[in-house]
């Protein structure tokens, strides 16, 4: 790692001020950023830790919405969102490994927007609202391609609001080495329709599979997806699977998510 200054503010306001410096970068749980820094792929002059900000932590149910602080760890979401939004809690409880879940945060994951991360599928698949220190961003506007989001420099995800669906589930097949999703699909059924979000598969990062959404909105059953395929043109092809394989898996995982939805 290149060296950097480290600050750990106690409030969002302090953090925003600290991030106003050029080359300052926010540090969530660090489970992606620290390995990146070790490879010297980033060189911030200052890291602003968000782990000391109490107001950014916690899970609460507000009406038909689950609100999760941006600094909440995957483990906490897995434990505390389980009754209100079991599909989301299940997803959080399967990110990385237990030690990673004890540090990694939802805000960190969404800000990074790794094309193989789990949380983007939940956020997009739920039509969540990404709340920052300065505004609210709809998930449909937030994800803008791999490692690219609507966040401005220095903008912090303070909370994420997930509308609670009637049913939901997350189906994942792991990449054999990293154990990140090779392909994973989050399905959520709402009163006004079904959302299907796919991660791990596309060169453009997480995306909604609109044909599947249409089919499932009419008939929320796995066989409603029979015959539906996604094009492999934009799928990732690498050591772990061809684009055609990933395209195939999108259908398989979507069906499995529907079948498992509760």
């Amino acid at each position: 790692m290149y060296n950097f200054d480290f600050v750990k503010p106690a409030t969002v306001d302090e953090a925003v001020k600290a991030l106003a410096d050029d080359e300052a970068q926010a540090l969530g749980g660090g489970q992606t950023l620290i390995p990146t820094l070790k490879q010297r792929l980033a060189s911030p002059s200052k890291l602003v830790s968000l782990t000391g900000i109490a107001e950014m932590k916690g899970v609460s149910k507000q009406g038909d919405t689950v609100v999760i602080g941006g600094g909440t760890t995957h483990r906490t979401v897995a434990e505390e969102a389980a009754s209100a939004y079991p599909g989301l809690a299940d997803l959080a409880g399967r990110i990385g490994d237990p030690a990673v879940r004890n540090r990694g945060t939802i805000g960190g994951s969404l800000a990074n927007n790794d094309p193989s991360a789990c949380y983007p599928a939940a956020a997009l698949g739920s039509g969540a609202t990404i709340v920052t220190n300065s505004r609210e961003i709809a998930a449909d506007d937030y994800f803008q391609g791999m490692f690219t989001t609507a966040l401005e420099e220095g903008e912090i995800i303070t909370e994420v609001r997930f509308p609670i669906p009637k049913k939901s589930a997350y189906a994942k097949i792991a990449q054999p080495a990293s154990r990140f999703p090779l392909v994973a699909v989050f399905v959520a059924q709402y009163a006004d329709g079904v959302r299907v979000a796919v991660t791990g598969a596309s060169n453009n990062g997480v995306f909604r599979w609109s044909e599947a959404e249409a089919a499932l909105s009419g008939n929320f059953a796995a066989d409603a997806l029979d015959g539906l395929t996604v094009a492999s043109d934009d799928m990732i092809g690498d050591l772990h699977g061809t684009a055609a394989y990933r395209a195939h898996l999108v259908g398989v995982m979507a069906k499995r998510a529907v079948a498992a939805a509760s």
């Binding site: 054999p176 080495a177 990293s178 154990r179 050591l239």
Partner: peptide, 26 residues
């Protein structure tokens, strides 16, 4: 048999250069 594969591309770049791409048995 199932997981491990040290792979190069045609230019000699190591594709499986860390545990992110070299699959260790768990």
């Amino acid at each position: 048999a199932l997981l491990e594969n040290c792979a190069y591309d045609e230019n000699g770049q190591l594709l499986s250069a860390s545990y992110m791409d070299y699959a260790m048995p768990r």
